[in-house]
Simulated assay, not measured.
Amino acid sequence: MADADQVRNSVALARKARLDARSGRLTGPTANLAPGHVQANLAILPRALAADFLHFCQRNPKPCPLLAMSEPGDPSLPELGADIDIRTDIPRYRVWKNGELVAEPTDVRDIWRDDLVSFLIGCSFSFEEAMLDNGLPVRHIEQGSNVPMYRTNIPTQPAGVFGGPLVVSMRPLKAADAIRAIQVTSRFPSVHGAPVHIGDPSLIGISDINRPDYGDPVEIRPGEMPVFWACGVTPQSVVAAVRPDFCITHAPGHMLVTDLINSRMAML
Score class of each variant (00 low, 15 high):
103 A>P: 13
112 W>S: 09
76 S>Y: 04
111 I>P: 06
80 L>H: 00
112 W>H: 08
107 D>T: 12
94 R>L: 11
116 L>T: 05
85 D>F: 11
128 E>Y: 10
114 D>I: 01
95 V>G: 08
116 L>A: 04
100 E>N: 08
105 P>E: 03
71 E>Q: 15
77 L>R: 03
69 M>D: 00
118 S>G: 09
128 E>T: 05
128 E>P: 12
86 I>Y: 06
122 G>R: 06
80 L>Q: 02
79 E>G: 12
90 I>L: 14
91 P>Y: 01
127 F>R: 03
85 D>R: 09
67 L>Y: 03
105 P>M: 07
115 D>V: 06
135 G>E: 10
71 E>T: 14
96 W>C: 07
67 L>M: 09
124 S>W: 02
118 S>H: 09
115 D>N: 13
135 G>H: 08
108 V>L: 06
90 I>F: 12
78 P>R: 11
100 E>L: 10
92 R>L: 13
69 M>L: 14
97 K>L: 11
107 D>M: 14
68 A>M: 01
100 E>M: 05
72 P>W: 10
77 L>P: 05
128 E>L: 06
124 S>P: 00
111 I>F: 07
95 V>I: 14
82 A>S: 13
75 P>D: 02
131 M>A: 10
81 G>Y: 08
106 T>I: 12
116 L>I: 09
100 E>G: 00
103 A>C: 10
89 D>C: 09
74 D>H: 07
61 P>V: 09
82 A>K: 13
75 P>E: 04
130 A>K: 07
114 D>C: 04
81 G>F: 10
61 P>K: 02
94 R>C: 12
102 V>N: 08
121 I>L: 14
87 R>P: 15
109 R>A: 10
62 K>S: 13
92 R>A: 11
99 G>K: 11
92 R>Y: 00
101 L>V: 03
68 A>C: 11
77 L>I: 15
76 S>H: 15
68 A>F: 15
